[in-house]
Amino acid sequence: MANLLSVEQLRIRRTEYTNRILTGSFIIIAAASLIASLALLPAYILIRFERISLESQNQAIAESVSLSESNTDRDVLIDARKRIEAIDKTLHNTGAVALLMRTLIERRPEGLRIQSVQFTSREKNTTRISGTMESRAQMQEYIAALSASSLFDSVSVPVSALADAADGIFVITASGGTGL
């Protein structure tokens, strides 16, 4: 098919079509952008208002909470806890000495005389009992009686004191145990 338009007319027509296509495209793009913008705008406004509201609430909370006041409260409570721990550590042995003395006296066999008692409360409490006896059997009986007590973990005769046993002198050391 032969083209009836001249070259110049053809160029003008092509330019015209191109302009139309471009204008149409631009209008579509502009319309789409505007519609999308309008659709997004409420979301933007809502989020912005929510953000401003949250920030003002945060500021109000920050102003209502005095950091120094809460630190003071925390410090006095920590101080109280440390005091309780210190006092508990000091008082946990209360009654142990009376119980110890009662145990030493009540479990003493007939004929055995206590001359001295030494007690030291450290990480492991130790008690040293010394006195006189009529026979070694009494000392053995006393050791067995003290060992049977839940107050002591171990009851023994110091090696250095074994020689004295022949002279009727006994030395017993007891250590540890519940309540001591």
Partner: peptide, 12 residues
């Protein structure tokens, strides 16, 4: 008082 016996020696 908040106290405890840390050591004692009892001797005839």
């Amino acid at each position: 008082a908040a106290s405890s016996i840390t050591h004692f020696e009892l001797e005839r």
